[in-house]
């Protein structure tokens, strides 16, 4: 199920680049089994993940249609490997829709469009607002946690181990119902298979056990819930469930304490979490509306340099522009 590099034709615009790869639009390429547009993730030389990518591609193709469709809208799954001269040089993935990106001005005044990574949710809301990032309120945060639990449930029931849950590998959107997508899925592992590439822990996300499994996913999800619900300076390092007192009820506190506790067997499953958040949000509650009411998405235009003093000033404050 590999696509030859030449079959992609002329690549579309470069959409982004990271340490591992460059990502291009491929507007002319469509696949019968993928609903929307695709992107080509071209690994930098020496950064190609080994053979295990094929297994992820195949596993998706063997899913029933409803499951596959759900996978495609909740992850940036590798849908095909791309080969160049017999070796894997990249993958095709569904394009992440526009509303997972956020456009703002950086402090220097430069315009920026980037993915709404979960790390922005951990930042002190006042600071995030000043930096021009969306700042959801409590209800929208709970809804994002619930949606993440839903993605994890989908993957766990289909026998995957996510492995590297961290501040950058999940992205969110707030319109159209707060929802979450997993990106950078190349490190996902099929349960029962040997790890195709050593599954790694991001700094500050390491679980008590050495070997990554669905249990360590549940641990890392606990950290994600804690840090998302208790944003602030230092929150990206939080490990203590006590921060969540006052944000969650007693049941939520106990779920969290078990999730990030040392005993893998006590950790609540994705389904346990999903049920809990659903109840908390009120069954069938229109979370979009709740989010809109409690969390006006505020955007500032950032900082500009005052031409006379050459100091940085907040654009729009005190009548300065």
């Amino acid at each position: 199920m590999a696509v030859p590099r030449v079959a992609l034709g002329t690549l579309g615009p470069l959409l982004g680049s990271g340490g591992q790869a460059k990502v291009y639009a491929v507007p002319s390429v469509r696949l019968p089994d993928v609903a929307g547009p695709l992107v080509f993730k071209h690994y930098r030389p020496g950064q190609e993940p080994p053979a295990g990518l094929h297994a992820l591609v195949l596993r998706r193709l063997r899913m029933d249609l409803p499951t596959r469709d759900r996978l495609d809208v909740r992850t940036a799954w590798p849908v095909r490997t791309v080969q160049d001269g017999g070796a894997v040089c990249g993958v095709l993935m569904p394009l992440i829709p526009d509303d997972y990106f956020h456009t703002r001005y950086l402090p220097s005044g430069a315009a920026d469009r980037s993915l709404c990574e979960f790390q922005h949710l951990f930042v002190d809301p006042e600071r995030a607002r000043r930096l021009g990032m969306p700042v959801p309120g409590r209800k929208a945060r709970l809804a994002l946690c619930r949606d993440f639990a839903g993605v994890m449930h989908l993957l766990h029931t289909n026998n995957f181990v996510i492995g590297d849950i961290n501040a950058k590998n999940a992205v969110f959107r707030l319109n159209a119902g707060p929802s979450v997508r997993l990106v950078d899925c190349d490190a996902i592992r099929i349960r029962g298979d040997a790890a195709v590439l050593a599954q790694l822990n991001a700094p500050d996300w390491d679980p008590p056990e050495r070997t990554l499994s669905q249990s360590t996913d549940l641990y890392k999800f606990g950290l994600l819930v804690l840090r998302t619900l208790c944003p602030g300076n230092g929150a990206s390092l939080y490990r203590d469930p006590d921060h969540v007192r006052g944000v969650l009820d007693g049941r939520g506190y106990r779920l969290l304490a078990d999730a990030i506790g040392a005993s893998p067997r006590r950790r609540p499953t994705a389904r346990d979490w999903g049920l809990y958040f659903t109840e908390l949000l009120g069954a069938g509650a229109p979370t979009t509306r709740a989010a809109r009411i409690s969390a006006p998405v505020v955007t500032t235009s950032g900082w500009v340099r005052d031409p006379t003093t050459r100091q940085w000033v907040q654009a729009g404050s005190d009548g300065q522009t």
């Binding site: 950086l106 402090p107 220097s108 920026d112 990032m133 929150a235």
Partner: peptide, 20 residues
């Protein structure tokens, strides 16, 4: 040289948990 720190600030603003 005067652009060094604004560039650093932009980079941290894009990855704000670095501030921890």
């Amino acid at each position: 040289a005067n652009q060094i720190m604004p560039a650093v600030l932009d980079a941290v603003a894009k990855a704000p948990i670095l501030a921890d």
